[in-house]
Simulated assay, not measured.
Amino acid sequence: MNGPYPFLISIPHSGTSVPPELRGLVNLTRKEIVFNSDPYTRRIYGFDDAVEAVVDFDVSRIFVDTNRAPYDYPPRTQDGVVKVITQDGTPVFRKGQTPGRELIGALLKNYYHPFHKRLSEALDTRPIEIAFDCHSMLPQSPPVRMDAGRPRPLFCLSNRGDRNGKPKTAGGLVTCPPEWLQALARSFQAEFEGEGRVAMNDPFRGGFISVAHYRRRRVPWVQVEINRGFYEAEGREAGEAHLAELQGRIFSAVAGFWDEVTG
Rank of each mutant, 00 (worst) to 15 (best):
M1L: 07
P4V: 09
P12E: 08
H13L: 15
H13N: 15
V18C: 10
V34S: 00
F35Y: 08
N36I: 04
S37Y: 06
S37A: 09
P39W: 09
T41W: 07
R43D: 12
V51I: 12
V51D: 12
A53C: 14
A53R: 11
D56H: 10
F57W: 11
V59P: 13
D65P: 09
T66F: 10
N67D: 11
N67V: 03
Y71Q: 05
K83M: 07
I85E: 04
Q87A: 07
Q87P: 02
G96A: 04
E102W: 15
I104Q: 06
G105C: 03
L108W: 08
K109A: 15
K109F: 12
T125M: 06
A131W: 09
H135W: 01
M137R: 10
L138D: 15
F155T: 13
D162I: 02
G165H: 13
T169L: 08
G172H: 01
G172C: 02
L173M: 09
P178C: 05
E179K: 04
E179N: 01
W180G: 03
L184N: 14
F192H: 06
N201Y: 04
P203M: 02
R205Y: 00
G206E: 04
F208N: 03
V211Q: 10
R215P: 12
R217M: 00
R218Q: 15
R218D: 12
V219Y: 02
E225W: 02
E225K: 01
I226Y: 08
I226N: 09
R228G: 07
E232C: 15
E234L: 13
E234A: 14
G235C: 09
A255S: 04
T262F: 01
